[in-house]
């Protein structure tokens, strides 16, 4: 990369300006409670220059920290105004930075230790989620409260859409499936059942547009409290549960037209 100069300095990567500052403090054996600001600023700026020399984009956070360091230095050079409330008087401008560095060091250590813990699917394994868990049948009344999160729902929809094979050419087609019709279809599918896997309501819909219409119908149904979307475990299957109410009029979506 740096062919002209004949050598290239290998730069360690840092998670951010605090990480870099901590590294400099340790490397130059500075006392963290009494950081020589001039020296650390110099080292810090030297590092940023190295980054630029290697065509690494210097993130704005690094520049902000450089400005902060210089700001601290200039504050320390200024004479302290003689009469002030005595509390403000002797606050070292370095205090906040030291605080942040120490806090950051703590979480960095915590993260390191956490990383050494045996992790699921990396170091330890448990029985994987049963896709069609039998337990769902037996233990779940319709009043289950395994609320599905937005992310999971979007991911499930994405999964359904990914299975749609789009032709290599663009086809303009007319679909006559309305949200109301999709809602009726959904109710027909749910009729007499305790619950239905989320994917099933899209099973006979070959096109992207129709899937989207059905998805809106599902959301509509949830909004009207005619069904519930439930996920029992993280990463588990998503189910649609019909909500049985007494005076359930036959078409729920028509009123929305």
């Amino acid at each position: 990369m740096n062919a002209a100069s004949g050598y290239a300095i290998k730069l360690d990567s840092f998670e951010g300006p605090l990480d870099l500052l901590l590294h400099l403090v340790v490397q130059h054996e500075m006392d963290i409670y009494d950081i020589p600001i001039a020296k650390i600023t110099e080292q810090y700026l030297f590092y940023l220059e190295q980054m630029e020399a290697q065509n690494i984009d210097v993130a704005s956070e690094f520049l902000l920290m450089a400005a902060t360091l210089i700001h601290i230095k200039s504050k320390m050079l200024l004479p302290v105004p003689p009469i002030e409330s005595s509390d403000d008087l002797d606050i070292d401008p370095r205090v906040e930075l030291v605080h942040r560095l120490l806090e950051y060091q703590r979480y960095k250590d915590g993260a390191q230790q956490l990383d050494e813990y045996p992790q699921l699917e990396r170091d330890v394994f448990a029985r994987p989620e049963n896709a069609e868990s039998d337990m769902a049948e037996s233990t779940l009344a319709p009043d289950v409260t395994g609320e599905v999160g937005l992310f999971e729902l979007v991911q499930a929809l994405r999964g359904v859409l990914e299975r749609v094979v789009e032709p290599p050419y663009h086809e303009v087609y007319v679909t006559d499936l309305t949200v109301a019709e999709a809602g009726q279809k959904l109710r027909a599918l749910l009729d007499g059942r305790e619950h239905m896997p989320f994917n099933e309501c899209f099973s006979d819909l070959p096109r992207r547009l129709e899937i989207v219409v059905m998805f809106i119908a599902v959301l509509e149904c949830v909004k009207l409290q005619r069904c519930k979307i439930v996920q029992l475990n993280p990463q588990g299957m998503i189910y649609i549960y019909p909500v049985h109410t007494q005076n359930c009029s036959s078409d729920c979506t028509s009123q929305e037209e």
Binding site: D90, I91, D92, R106, D109
Partner: peptide, 17 residues
């Protein structure tokens, strides 16, 4: 994991120094 506690990062100690 327990987070390491650092001694006296408080303002008082610093201003003393």
């Amino acid at each position: 994991p327990n987070l390491q506690e650092f001694t006296a990062p408080d303002d008082a100690a610093l201003s003393l120094e």
